[in-house]
């Protein structure tokens, strides 16, 4: 019982703190590439506190508020169902498929909240974000499916155990490199970094979904971003990088996954929505399908 309580409290907290670190890393890396100094270490926290402390907090109705709760709640749930070193949480009570679908709950919550703001720019942003989701989720799903076929289970704990039993040579990235690569491309899209950030498109639709988000609504979006980077990193690590033997290794892997993404992102411009769909359904999907074929052949 106590372990559950510990899971429920610590897993989201760890996720949040790690997520702050990931956000910081992303901003620092970007700054380095752009030859800037970059923000101080505590800048992500400052941002959140500042937003929460704002005097004017504008709400667009109950659904707007509720969407923030769905946003946070969805990700907190996802954290609890993720296996991390020392905490398996509820990973045994819901599997990989459950996790993927739980991650769509905050997405839907955000979409509903933005929609209820009645600002067309927000709606346009959501339309693009959902289209983008359709684009990157297909290669991602193929990668997940291939991995599950290879491991023979969707139980996250077992997936981790199988990879750790044989050391790095039995990691998903080693045994199914094509799937892992396709999955990595999809994950990059999932993080919403260039060239896949048409849904924010600041100059065009005034940052899309965020257009009516201010104050603590925006703060919640910041928190969400921490969770999002962390969750994506952990899922990828769990699937292809052997999960976490212990915290240092584990965090290193998670940071590495996110680092790859933030490091390459600045090179690109921005894809149009249809270009993004075509690209996602051509390259990562093709690579992942090839990987899947290899898995099926074995």
């Amino acid at each position: 019982m106590m372990s559950y309580v510990a899971d429920f409290i610590f897993m989201p907290l760890i996720a949040f703190v790690t997520g702050l670190g990931l956000v910081l890393m992303a901003r620092r890396v970007r700054a380095k590439i752009e030859r800037r100094v970059g923000p101080p270490v505590l800048q992500p926290i400052y941002d959140i506190v500042k937003l929460y402390a704002k005097k004017t907090q504008i709400s667009h109705g109950i659904m707007h508020d509720l969407s923030i709760m769905m946003l946070l709640g969805g990700f907190i749930t996802a954290e609890i169902f993720l296996p991390v070193p020392g905490f398996d949480g509820l990973a045994g009570e819901g599997d990989l498929i459950t996790l993927i679908y739980i991650m769509m709950v905050p997405m839907l919550g955000l979409a509903l909240g933005v929609g209820s703001c009645a600002n067309p720019n927000g709606s346009i942003g959501i339309s693009r974000a959902l289209t983008a989701m359709l684009a990157y989720d297909i290669p991602f799903i193929i990668a997940v499916t291939g991995a599950c076929m290879a491991y023979g289970t969707t139980n996250l704990i077992e997936i981790v155990q199988i990879q750790q039993a044989g050391g790095p040579a039995s990691w998903g990235a080693a045994t199914m490199p094509l799937l892992a690569f396709g999955g990595l491309l999809a994950v990059h899209g999932m993080m919403g970094k260039e060239p896949f950030e048409i849904y924010i498109a600041p100059a065009e639709i005034a940052t899309g979904p965020m257009v009516e988000m201010s104050g603590k609504y925006m703060g919640a979006l910041f928190i969400m971003q921490c969770f999002q980077l962390y969750t994506i990193g952990v899922i990828y690590t769990t699937l292809f990088l052997g999960g976490g033997e212990n915290w240092p290794f584990f965090l290193a892997k998670v940071f590495a996954v996110v680092f790859i993404s933030v490091a390459v992102t600045n090179v690109y411009g921005r894809f149009k929505t249809d270009t993004m769909i075509r690209w996602m359904w051509k390259w990562p999907t093709g690579i992942a399908l090839a990987g899947l074929a290899l898995v099926m052949a074995n």
Partner: peptide
Amino acid sequence: TGSLNMLWVVGVLIGAIGAG
């Protein structure tokens, strides 16, 4: 090969939304 317990899933989801 992987289980589903909706009591947990929904319970945690509701609790987490409460936390949210």
